[in-house]
């Protein structure tokens, strides 16, 4: 197989794995922003919390990697409800600026707490044997972990798509994103709906945080460092759109990986350039409502 084809396949494979991580972590942010218009800069902190819970469970309690991921998602999802009910709720009608300040304050507190508990050095996580090693496809060996990430991503996307498009509650969420007041006036309890999606989104973010440890390592700065990427995925995809978030995650994931393969010195330049171009042409993102 010619050299450029191998590189192209590698970029696609790694980019796809990266895109799955971006999608899993960002999708909750997109739906909650679409529902309430709430700018939640603490979303990265929920992802980081999930990551550290996975680290603690696997390293200190000896629980397996996969069950740890599930526990982290459930715990963070449940705790996020407290934040939503206690803090966020007060600011739904406030300005963007106030929401930005509150949530960035929470993110700072989360980073400080994580530094205090786990130290500033990046943590890793022990993988079970079935996720270690490579899968060989003849011309190139692919890391098993990334293949697992892709499969898991596809499964989650299917489940979310089904829940969003085919179930009653999914229809209610879509209705509330489209027109909140109308949805309320036909008797949909948007408040409750929002709490549910917020918990689900935070749980998924925690799952993403746990999955990210093997890819990037986990340090307290994760909460802000990758937050920018999640926000970009949400803004480029369009608020509250599953399809848009997926498309944006794929575009950003593949382009960022490609840029790092082919022109590493440019760093993140390409994704920011893409973001600016997309938003200048379509201010509401790919599938957002203008």
């Amino acid at each position: 197989m010619p050299q450029f084809a191998i590189i192209a396949v590698s970029i696609l494979f790694d980019g796809l794995a990266y895109a799955m991580f971006l999608f899993i972590t960002s999708v909750g942010l997109s739906v909650t922003m679409g529902l309430m218009g709430f700018v939640n800069l603490a979303h990265g902190a929920f992802a980081m919390a999930g990551g550290y819970i996975v680290v603690s469970l696997t390293r200190n309690l000896g629980i397996g990697f996969a069950p740890s991921l599930a526990i982290a998602a459930v715990v963070v999802g449940a705790v996020s409800v407290i934040f939503e009910r206690g803090l966020y709720r007060r600011l739904y009608k406030a300005t963007d600026l106030e929401q930005v300040l509150l949530t960035i304050g929470l993110a700072f507190m989360a980073i400080a707490t994580a530094t205090y508990l786990y130290g500033p050095i990046p943590k890793s996580v022990p993988l079970p044997t079935w996720l270690q090693g490579d899968i060989s496809l003849g011309f190139r060996a692919f890391p098993t972990y990334r293949a697992f990430l892709i499969v898991l991503g596809i499964v989650l996307i299917s489940v979310l798509w089904y829940a969003f498009e085919k179930t009653n509650i999914g229809a209610k969420i879509r209705a509330a994103v489209d027109n909140r007041r109308m949805a309320e006036s036909v008797g949909i309890n948007v408040d409750l709906l929002f709490t549910l999606t917020f918990a689900l989104g935070s749980g998924l973010a925690a799952l993403g945080g746990g999955l990210a440890i093997q890819l990037f390592g986990l340090s307290p700065s994760f909460a802000v460092l990758y937050l920018v990427l999640f926000l970009i995925v949400v803004a480029v995809g369009g608020l509250g759109s599953l399809k848009g978030t997926l498309l944006a995650a794929l575009v950003i994931g593949v382009i960022d990986t490609g840029g790092k393969y082919l022109y590493a010195e440019a760093g993140g330049f390409f994704i920011y350039a893409i973001t600016v171009i997309v938003l200048l042409i379509k201010p509401a993102g790919f599938y957002g409502r203008e």
């Binding site: 922003m33 218009g37 700018v39 963007d96 930005v100 920018v228 926000l231 970009i232 949400v234 803004a235 608020l239 440019a266 760093g267 993140g268 330049f269 920011y272 350039a273 973001t275 600016v276 938003l279 200048l280 201010p283 509401a284």
Partner: peptide, 18 residues
């Protein structure tokens, strides 16, 4: 709103990357 936040943020980071 969010679009402006992201655009200003991206502009600053692009300058840093450049």
């Amino acid at each position: 709103g969010l679009t402006l936040l992201m655009l200003t943020l991206a502009t600053a980071i692009m300058m840093q990357e450049a």
